[in-house]
């Protein structure tokens, strides 16, 4: 896997932003706001903190262009996608509930949006690694 220096910097930066984003959402979910994209979900928030930490862990090593760093980013992305897809399915289920008249139209959860926003990073890593 040959990665140029600038690409490493971009990946590291992206990773940091992803980490921050997940961290913020995690805190919001834990502190119990039930607003639009955020639901009060303590364990969900904790899971997001784990993802955020993984992104953060990858920053330093990625700048050093080591495989250790890339693997953290890869791991972070996979977890992001898993949670994103899962919440997407739940969202669809929510729409079904709405169609049956059992509840209001659901808001997509933040995890979905977060997962979508890391997909460019996923694409970058995928091109380079596989």
């Amino acid at each position: 896997m040959k990665i140029g220096y600038t690409e490493s910097k971009i990946m590291a930066l992206y990773s940091m932003l992803a980490g921050i984003a997940y961290f913020i959402v995690a805190i919001l979910e834990i502190t119990g706001i039930d607003f639009r994209y955020i639901s009060h979900d303590i364990f969900g928030g904790i899971a997001l903190i784990v993802i955020a930490t993984i992104y953060f862990a990858g920053i330093k090593e990625t700048l050093k262009k080591s495989y250790r760093g890339y693997s953290f980013i890869l791991g972070g992305i996979i977890l992001s996608l898993i949670f994103g897809v899962m919440h997407l399915l739940i969202y669809i289920a929510g729409i079904l509930e709405y169609a049956m008249g059992n509840s209001g139209f659901p808001f997509p959860r933040a995890e979905i949006i977060l997962a979508i926003s890391v997909s460019p990073l996923a694409y970058l890593v995928y091109k380079k690694a596989v």
């Binding site: 364990f43 904790i46 993802i51 977890l79 898993i82 399915l89 929510g94 049956m100």
Partner: peptide, 19 residues
């Protein structure tokens, strides 16, 4: 990571199957 994935599995189970 293991715990997070376990949580995801159960969250999916309950929320997705509701409708």
């Amino acid at each position: 990571i293991f715990l997070a994935l376990m949580y995801a599995a159960f969250q999916f189970t309950f929320s997705f199957s509701a409708p």
